[in-house]
Computed example of a mutant assay.
Amino acid sequence: MTGDGQGTPHLYRGRVAFVDTDASGRIHFTAVFRWAEAAEHDLLRSLGHSFTGGFPRVDVQAGYRAALRFDDEYELALAVASVGKSSIAYTWRIRTGGEVAVEGRHHVVFVGDGERPHPLPEDLRGQLTSMLPAAPQGGA
């Protein structure tokens, strides 16, 4: 993520579980979205927040570049791409053996305990905003 316009990523490591695979022995396409969600929750916990169910996904996308198989170790780098009044956009990259296996993104909206969007808590907004990439410096 660093080097492609993203801020400092939050790293989340795991290993492909048997339940993550399909009949071909490769990961089922949905596994990466669970891993990205786990990385997001890990990030929020690391910032001192614990929200259960308050961030439904409104947009998700993944591009698969290399196969991941049962028991492969992976590293997911999650970066904050943008922070809105009630929403957060993340980008992420999954590597295994030094190779990019999946690149993706997802966008969530904070709903608190309800069904409608609510403004993000100010302390969380500040923490996530500080993780955004620095704006390019203008020059002559």
Rank of each mutant, 00 (worst) to 15 (best):
V32R: 02
R65P: 05
F55W: 11
V83E: 12
V60C: 10
W92P: 01
H107P: 14
L43N: 10
L43P: 11
H107K: 02
F55K: 12
F70D: 00
E73A: 11
R26G: 04
E122I: 06
Q137M: 10
R45Q: 00
H118Q: 12
T129H: 06
G114F: 03
V111E: 15
A79Q: 07
H41M: 04
V111S: 15
Q6W: 09
R125W: 05
R57S: 00
T8H: 01
T129A: 07
V109W: 14
L78P: 03
R15G: 08
A135K: 01
T91Y: 04
V111Y: 03
T30N: 15
G25Y: 09
L68K: 02
P133H: 13
G126C: 05
F18Y: 15
A38F: 04
R95A: 10
T21G: 09
V19I: 14
V32Y: 06
P117F: 12
A17Q: 09
F55N: 13
L44N: 06
P121L: 02
L76H: 04
Y64C: 03
R69P: 03
E115R: 15
A36C: 10
Y12R: 12
A38G: 06
L78T: 00
Y64K: 08
P136D: 02
E37R: 14
V83H: 09
L11K: 00
V16H: 07
